[in-house]
C-alpha cells in the first residue's frame, strides 16, 4: 500500500485545495505588497531622499545629504545674515485656509445631513445620488465655475451693480465695512482675490465629502435620544450641544480632519482666488518642482514638512478624542 492510498478522501480534497489556493494567495499577496511598495512607499522614500539633495545654480540638482533645505524652510535663504519666515508663512496659510474651509464645510454640512436623514428613504436616495454625482466634477471645473461667478465683469459684482445692491450698500454704510474686509474697491464689491472667495471655493470642493462622511453616523443616530432630552427640559440648541454633537463626536472629528488634510494640498483654488502673498506650501511645492524655480530638493523638503505637519495634526486630533472619551 502506498502512502497516497493511506490518505482518506476528505484529506485528499483538503490537501488538493491547499496546494491549489496556497500559491495563488501568496502570489496575490506578494503582488499587492509589491504594488504598495512601488507605488506608495518608494515614491515617498524618493521624495524624502531628494529633500536632502542640492540645487546646482544654473542646472538641475544632485544627490547629496544636506540639511540646507530644511534650514532654509525655517529661517530663510539669507540666514545667517537675515532671518525670513516666508516658507513658514506659506505653511501657516496652508493651515489657515484648510482649517477654516474644512470647519465651514463640516458646520454647514452637519445641519444639512441631519435634515437629510429625516427625509423619506426615497428623498434621501435622490439627494445622495445627486451629491455623489457632484464628486465627479474636477477641482479645475469647480474653480472655473466659481471664477466666473465671482469675477468682477460678469459675476456677482456685476449683478450687485446692475441691481443697485452696491448703491444700497453704500447708502446704508455697509460698503465701507466690505472695503475694510477687502471685499470691495472704491467702485463696486469685488471677491477676487480674497480670503472669502478662497475659503468659499475650498469649502465647496469638500462639502459633498463632508455630507457623505457624516451621513452614516447621523442616519444611525437614535432620534429618541433627542426626544428624551426634550422631555427633560432641553431646548433644541441644548439637545444639539449636549446630545447630538457628543453622540457623533468621533465621526465629526474624523470628517473634519480628513477634509483638513485633503485641503492642505489644494492648488487650483489658491492660485486663482488667494492673493499672491497668501499662497500656500502646496503652490510653492509646484513652483519649485515644476514651475519657475526648478528647485526639486527644496520642493521635496516642503512636501515632507507639509506631510509631517498633517501627521502631527492627525495625532493631536487622536489625542484630543482620547481625552474627550476619557472624560
Amino acid at each position: 500500500m502506498t502512502v497516497a492510498n493511506d490518505i482518506s478522501l476528505p484529506d485528499r480534497v483538503q490537501s488538493a485545495n491547499k496546494t491549489s489556493t496556497f500559491p495563488a494567495k501568496s502570489v496575490l499577496l506578494g503582488f499587492l505588497t509589491s504594488a504598495i511598495v512601488v507605488f506608495c512607499v518608494f515614491p515617498f522614500l524618493l521624495v524624502l531622499a531628494i529633500s536632502f539633495g542640492r540645487k546646482v545654480d544654473g542646472a538641475a540638482w544632485v544627490w547629496d545629504f544636506t540639511l540646507e533645505n530644511y534650514q532654509r524652510f525655517f529661517v530663510g535663504v539669507l540666514w545667517p545674515q537675515e532671518v525670513t519666515f516666508l516658507y513658514l508663512q506659506q505653511l501657516y496659510y496652508s493651515f489657515y485656509f484648510a482649517v477654516i474651509a474644512s470647519l465651514l464645510a463640516v458646520v454647514t454640512a452637519l445641519p444639512f445631513t441631519l435634515a437629510l436623514t429625516r427625509l423619506s428613504r426615497r428623498a434621501q436616495a435622490i439627494w445622495l445620488v445627486f451629491i455623489l454625482s457632484s464628486l465627479s466634477l474636477s477641482e479645475v471645473f469647480i474653480v472655473m465655475g466659481w471664477d466666473i461667478l465671482l469675477s468682477n465683469n460678469s459675476g456677482l459684482p456685476k449683478l450687485f451693480k446692475e441691481t443697485g445692491l452696491t448703491a444700497w450698500l453704500k447708502e446704508v454704510g455697509w460698503f465701507q465695512t466690505l472695503r475694510d474686509w477687502g471685499l470691495a474697491n472704491p467702485r463696486n464689491v469685488k471677491f477676487k482675490t480674497s480670503d472669502f472667495a478662497t475659503i468659499l471655493t475650498m469649502s465647496y470642493l469638500v462639502w459633498p465629502y463632508a455630507v457623505i462622511l457624516l451621513y452614516p453616523a447621523l442616519s444611525r443616530l437614535d432620534p429618541s435620544l433627542g426626544e428624551a432630552a426634550r422631555t427633560m427640559g432641553a431646548s433644541r440648541w441644548t439637545v444639539t450641544r449636549t446630545v447630538t454633537l457628543p453622540s457623533i463626536r468621533l465621526p465629526l472629528m474624523g470628517t473634519t480632519l480628513l477634509l483638513f488634510v485633503f485641503l492642505l494640498g489644494t492648488y487650483v483654488s489658491i492660485t486663482v482666488f488667494a492673493a499672491p502673498n497668501k499662497h500656500t506650501t502646496a503652490v510653492a511645492i509646484y513652483a519649485n518642482i515644476r514651475g519657475a524655480n526648478l528647485n526639486a530638493p527644496f520642493g521635496a523638503t516642503q512636501a515632507i514638512i507639509l506631510l509631517i505637519s498633517a501627521s502631527v495634526c492627525l495625532y493631536l486630533g487622536h489625542l484630543l478624542n482620547r481625552r474627550a472619551e476619557g472624560r
Binding site: 437614535d222 435620544l225 426626544e227 453622540s247
Partner: peptide, 9 residues
C-alpha cells in the same frame, strides 16, 4: 422610552 434612550456618552 421603549429603548430607554439613555445617553451613551
Amino acid at each position: 422610552f421603549q429603548n430607554f434612550a439613555l445617553f451613551p456618552h
